[in-house]
């Protein structure tokens, strides 16, 4: 979820303006242009009402279909709306959580996380409550869709969103996902549990994940630790077997958290901030 999906068709990589992007998005002839325009509006944070309205329209598009029946334009529109900070789109994004395209649901959950509107908590939580019975996670939550690499629902994005939205009512449900068979879902649960409880037990789950096999999983844990600003993880992050670029992004997340704490106690540069920056300096 950290990689920007950029359209690969170089013919459509043109320079747009607010006007041409909105026009391109609204026309129906060239689907490639619509797809690119939706991405472009998000990328360049175009927050004008016109752009928002055109993206809302694209969110209900049924013309642009992928070979597996998905809705690529809706996915891009949802992603863009997440970046534009206008919460009037929240109800439309909530409706996208019922779309039959998994990736539209995932993009919508991510966008709802970014917009930070609490209205999204109940509809997101519904996905989790359905999968927990007598405090146990149902095996259905761990099944992948036939012929697809993904689970039935985008649990990773849903759980991360609930953590960011500070949905403490979701704690008992998120906790059961710590036992999920997918490592990335476990990490999402640990990340959200830490955000909701500030209990270092959950931060340490992610720190241990930094030593795991598989670069993708270590990268994922790096990003999670950065997102929650788990300051105690600084040294472990610096020592992780992964690219310095990612370690720096992760440490930046910790530093931002710590500087925010410092500013509340009116310290110029706290020793913890100083240590984090010393670590960052060694990775340049």
């Amino acid at each position: 979820m950290y990689q920007e999906i950029e359209p690969s068709d170089s013919n459509t990589q043109e320079v747009l303006t607010l006007e041409t992007a909105v026009d391109n998005l609204k026309q129906k002839e060239d689907l490639g242009k619509r797809y690119y325009a939706a991405w472009w509006l998000g990328k360049f944070r175009v927050t004008e009402e016109k752009a928002i309205d055109a993206l809302l329209e694209a969110l209900e598009d049924s013309e642009n279909r992928s070979s597996d029946g998905g809705y690529p334009l809706r996915r891009n529109a949802a992603k863009a709306l997440g970046k534009l900070g206008n919460t009037k789109v929240v109800p439309a994004l909530i409706r996208c959580l019922d779309c039959d395209d998994y990736y539209v649901r995932e993009s919508a959950a991510q966008a709802l996380e970014m917009l930070g509107d609490k209205q999204a908590i109940a509809p997101l939580m519904k996905f989790l409550t359905l999968m927990v019975k007598d405090g146990e996670l149902l095996s259905l939550a761990m099944e992948t869709v036939e012929d697809k690499p993904h689970l039935r629902e985008p649990y990773e994005a849903i759980i991360e969103a609930l953590g960011t939205l500070n949905a403490s009512e979701a704690i008992p449900f998120i906790e059961t996902f710590l036992n999920h068979s997918f490592a990335k879902v476990q990490y999402a649960a640990a990340r959200a549990m830490y955000q909701l409880t500030q209990d270092s037990e959950y931060g340490e789950i992610l720190v241990r994940a930094l030593e795991g096999d598989g670069l993708q999983l270590r990268r994922s844990a790096l990003m999670d630790l950065g997102a929650i600003g788990y300051v105690k993880g600084g040294n472990a992050i610096a020592e992780t077997l992964a690219e310095n670029s990612l370690k720096l992004i992760s440490l930046k997340g910790l530093l931002e958290y710590q500087v925010n704490q410092d500013s509340q106690s009116d310290i110029t540069v706290s020793s913890t901030s100083h240590q984090l920056m010393d670590l960052m300096d060694t990775l340049l």
Binding site: V259, N260, T268, S273, M277, M280
Partner: peptide, 13 residues
């Protein structure tokens, strides 16, 4: 960027 401001403070100190 918060991280940039923080590093500048440290450098000036």
């Amino acid at each position: 960027e918060i991280a940039i401001k923080a590093r500048i403070k440290l450098a000036l100190v």
